[in-house]
């Protein structure tokens, strides 16, 4: 009886430690394989943030969103990645793209129409721009 209890105790302890290690090392969200919660035009998306930042942030922040728009500029950031800027009628959507080998730079020329999937970070009111990270070009 006592031996059984010790045995169960050890099993429990091991499970907790294993669970802890898994939690500690759990992977980041894989935005590319996650299904996007919304699919809309860059202009419509920007407009929602412009109208009511708090409401739009509640709805979209931390969600994977696919949006279509026109590239105005591509800037290389200090981490070696790129920030694609989509310019709408009202403002800019700043899309951070990780430096990925599949990044087709030809597609990234100004004025080309793209569809981007990424994780919504939120609205920056200093420059009045909407920010996305971990972006991928879908189309």
């Amino acid at each position: 009886m006592k031996r059984n209890l010790i045995f169960i105790g050890i099993i429990l302890l091991i499970s907790i430690v294993v669970y802890g290690i898994f939690q500690y090392n759990k992977p980041h969200r894989d935005i590319a394989s996650e299904k996007s919660s919304y699919d809309l035009s860059a202009d419509d998306l920007y407009k929602e943030f412009e109208q009511d930042v708090d409401k739009a942030s509640m709805q979209y922040a931390d969600k994977v969103i696919t949006f279509a728009g026109t590239i105005s500029n591509v800037e290389q950031n200090q981490n070696g990645g790129y920030n694609i800027l989509l310019k709408g009628e009202k403002g800019v959507i700043n899309c951070e793209v990780d430096a990925a080998p599949d990044l087709d730079k030809k597609k990234l020329s100004a004025n080309s129409h793209v569809k981007i999937k990424g994780l919504c970070v939120g609205f920056d009111d200093l420059l009045q721009e909407l920010q996305f990270k971990k972006c991928h070009i879908v189309q």
Binding site: D62, L127, Q131
Partner: peptide, 22 residues
């Protein structure tokens, strides 16, 4: 990598903003 900043070189005024989720 998405910190924003405006610097006014005439007045020296400096404004920075960064989103925590970024």
């Amino acid at each position: 990598n998405q910190g924003t900043c405006i610097l006014d070189s005439e007045s020296g005024e400096l404004a920075l903003s960064v989103l925590i989720k970024g």
